[in-house]
Structure formats: structure tokens, C-alpha cells
Design a protein around this nucleic acid. Structure first.
Ligand SMILES: [Mn+2]
Ligand SMILES: [Mn+2]
Ligand SMILES: [Mn+2]
Ligand SMILES: [Mn+2]
Lengths: 218, 218
DNA sequence: TTATATTTTTAGAGTAGTCTAAAAATTTAT
DNA sequence: ATAAATTTTTAGACTACTCTAAAAATATAA
């Protein structure tokens, strides 16, 4: 049996290694989960026991084959539930993450299979994030963070890499959502902020915002 | 904060008092939850602390106002989720209880409001059990258990009072479901078993089965 | 009404997960 | 290469929930 806490650790390790690659540090996990490094150390020992991770003290951690399968399945459930909440229940994309954090732990393979069918096998969640397949594939999306684009490049927003209410509500206020056409007008070297054009309106955003906007160049 | 275990205790107390009325005994709860009487005693003290129950040692327990509200809300969630699983995801009525046991603990009032709308405000769950309203009303159903009917009475099955896979699968095998017209032909005094007629076919069922079939006399 | 059986509570202990403080290991700077 | 800073682990303790065994209370029967 795998506990809810263990599931959250596996998910955190997956999330960090998808973003940063390589071994994951104790502190990175503590930071991601919002817990102490001591608790992480404790838990890593338990996950090691269960062969869900490969862990050498002080040397960082990575998911084992079975740990990775479990983690990806949780990610799949999270994103399918978010899709359900937005597409079927009419939630706003900024409102679904916290509920999905609970729903992702419901244990029933049959439920997820049927949900996937009910949603007509969605490929992306409401934030443009790819939904892992039942087989554990995470389709790679060919996108670039907005802050890495060249000036005068035109593209379309395919997704966001941050799922926090404040951030998503701010995007909505800026008329930014998935599918929005965007042109990068200018990069300010002083603070790395950007001038952009959306629907013929010029706007200014910080680098912190831009780096979480995933663009497909057109 | 209320824990998952506490929620299950409140639900068990509600369920027992709906069936039997009056104070609920420690053993009845232990039996319902499948735990020891000692654990129940422990937990009753905690629920008392939180003013969710009225409890005098050795004298049994009843829900407080706030405990009852909480318990009814869990029942509402359970039955709405079961309705979702059957009506939207195509599960069989015998397959949904265990998953609903998990889903009923998801914390989000908004989610349940929207689910209720999505399901078009269902009044009954897939087992014919009434779904409590948001205000906490449990609509009473004017039905009689089949084993309490007079011989030669005709009626319609409005619901079942037991939600176990074996039982429901057996009913399906007998062509019994909600809405089925049924006539009570004979009561065997020796073992209290019953002869019944369904769709012009004569069948024989035990008292144990009959008592969980809720009939509206026609 | 005293004895017996049943029910309920307490006592003591175990597991899972969490925390803070301190020790040990590793990395960075001088 | 040593010292200082940082990271990670261990130690010890706490909460929530669980259990078995034994004691206390209540119900039933002779
Ligand atoms: Mn999310
Ligand atoms: Mn998402
Ligand atoms: Mn049920
Ligand atoms: Mn039901």
C-alpha cells in the first residue's frame, strides 16, 4: 500500500526532476512540499525501503521505475480531473488546482479510464500541460518560454508552467489565455521585463510572468 | 479541522440512527465501521471534545446539531458522486459504492454545488436512496420493505436499503432493478422466504433479500 | 438479589507522519 | 588546505489513529 503522503513525495520528486533534471535534493523536495528537510529525510528512507526511489544519503534521489510509474499516474489523474472540473463543471482554470490535489489520490483505475473516455481522451489540461497517457508517456510540447524568445517574434500561447490562482487570475486580467496570439516587442535589460502585443494592445509584463508562458512560434 | 476518520464515525452514527433511531451504542459503531470497541471509545471522546456528538459514558451517543449537519453533508456527497458515476461515467449500480466512499471526503463546497447542477439536481441516487438537499433535508420516501407487505400486494421497487456488490449483482440476475413491478405471491412461514412475480415470472427470494427491497404499493 | 454474561471503558503500546534542535557531511570561500 | 557556510541526517518528541488485554459498568438470569 502507498499512503497519501508517499504519493505526494513521489509527485514532488517527479515534478522537480522534470523541471531540473538529474538527482533531486532533500531541500528541493522540502521546499516543493512545504515541509522540513528532516521530514524529507525520514520519508526518503521509507520510500527507499519500498523501492520507489534510488537514494544514497547526501547524494540526492531519483525515482525508480515503479516510483516513476506511480508518480506519472498521479500526474495523469491530476490533469484529467482538472480537465473535468473546467470542461464539465464550468470551473475557471485558476480554481481547479487545489481540488485536483485531493482528487488525484482517489484509488480506482476503472474510474480514471472512464473519466478519460468521458472527456474524450484529452491531450492537454486547462493549463496547456500535457496529460500523460495510460501507458505513462508524457507527450513533449514544442514550446519556448516567452522570456527566451527573440524580439519581434510572433507566437501563440500553448500553455503555462505555473498553476497558481494569483498568476492565472492575473493572466486573465491581461486577456492572456491558451491560444492567445502574442508578439514580443521589446526586452528591457535592466529588469528583464517585456513589452508584448496582444490583440493589438501593447502591454508590459515582468520576467517572472513571462518565463511561465509557453509559446509556439508562428 | 475534521479528519477523514472523524468523518467516517459521524457518517456511521448517522447511518445507525437513521436505521434504528435513538442513542447509538459503541458496539454498533464498531460493527458498522469494522473496528474495535476500544477505538470507538477513544474516538467518541475526541468527537465529544469537538462538540460533534452528545455522549455520556456507557449511555450511548447521538449527533449534535453540527455533527448531524456534517454527517448529512457527507451522505449528500456520497450519493451525488454515486449518481455521477452511474449516470455520467456508465458504471453499474453495484460498482460505485467503494469509490464513492473515497470521493465523499473531498473538501470543496463549490465542487458539490457544481456537481449537483451538472447532474440536474437529482433527488435519488442509483440505489433509490434520497439525496439530502444542500440545506440538510433528507426527503422521506413513502416505501415499505417487501417482507412487510401483505400477500397478493402489487407494487413497484423504488430503492434498496443495502449497497453491497454481491446483493446488487444478485438483484440484477433476478431482473430486479429500480422501477421493476413486483407482486408478492406467498410468504413461507418456516423461513420467512417469499414467492414473488416479476414480469410474469415467478421467483423465490429469502427474507434477507426482501427486507432490503423498498416497495411503493400500487 | 446475587451471580453470570455482555458491553463499554481504560491502560498500554504500535504505526505513520510531523516537528525542532543538534550533529554530521558536504560545499564554498579564504 | 583550512575555515566557514550550507546541506543533510539523526535524535527525540508530539499528534492522530489503531490495536489487544484487562478492568469497570451494565444487563440478564437463576
Ligand atoms: Mn494543477
Ligand atoms: Mn494543470
Ligand atoms: Mn453507497
Ligand atoms: Mn447509494
Amino acid at each position: 500500500m502507498i499512503t497519501l503522503a508517499e504519493e505526494n513525495y513521489l509527485k514532488a520528486i517527479l515534478s522537480i526532476s522534470l523541471n531540473e533534471g538529474g538527482k533531486v535534493s532533500t531541500n528541493a523536495i522540502a521546499n516543493e512540499i512545504g515541509t522540513s528537510a528532516a521530514s524529507v529525510s525520514d520519508m526518503l528512507k521509507k520510500l527507499q525501503e519500498k523501492k520507489l526511489i534510488k537514494y544514497k544519503k547526501y547524494k540526492g534521489v531519483e525515482l525508480s521505475e515503479s516510483g516513476q510509474n506511480k508518480a506519472i499516474n498521479i500526474l495523469r489523474k491530476h490533469r484529467l480531473w482538472e480537465t473535468f472540473l473546467v470542461n464539465k463543471l464550468g470551473f475557471n482554470w485558476s480554481e481547479v488546482h487545489d481540488v485536483a490535489e485531493q482528487l488525484e489520490h482517489i484509488q480506482s483505475a476503472e474510474l480514471i479510464d472512464r473519466l478519460d473516455i468521458f472527456l474524450e481522451h484529452p491531450k492537454f489540461d486547462p493549463h496547456g500541460e500535457p496529460i500523460p497517457t495510460k501507458e505513462g508517456e508524457i507527450p513533449s510540447t514544442n514550446t519556448t518560454p516567452l522570456n527566451e524568445l527573440q524580439v519581434n517574434t510572433k507566437g501563440k500561447i500553448m500553455g503555462v508552467s505555473l498553476d497558481e490562482k494569483d498568476f492565472l487570475d492575473y493572466l486573465t486580467k491581461l486577456n492572456i489565455t491558451i491560444g492567445t496570439e502574442i508578439t514580443l516587442l521589446e526586452k528591457i535589460s535592466f529588469d528583464k521585463s517585456l513589452s508584448i502585443k496582444i490583440a493589438n494592445t501593447k502591454q508590459h509584463i515582468s520576467n517572472d510572468v513571462a518565463k511561465h508562458l509557453l509559446i509556439k512560434i508562428s
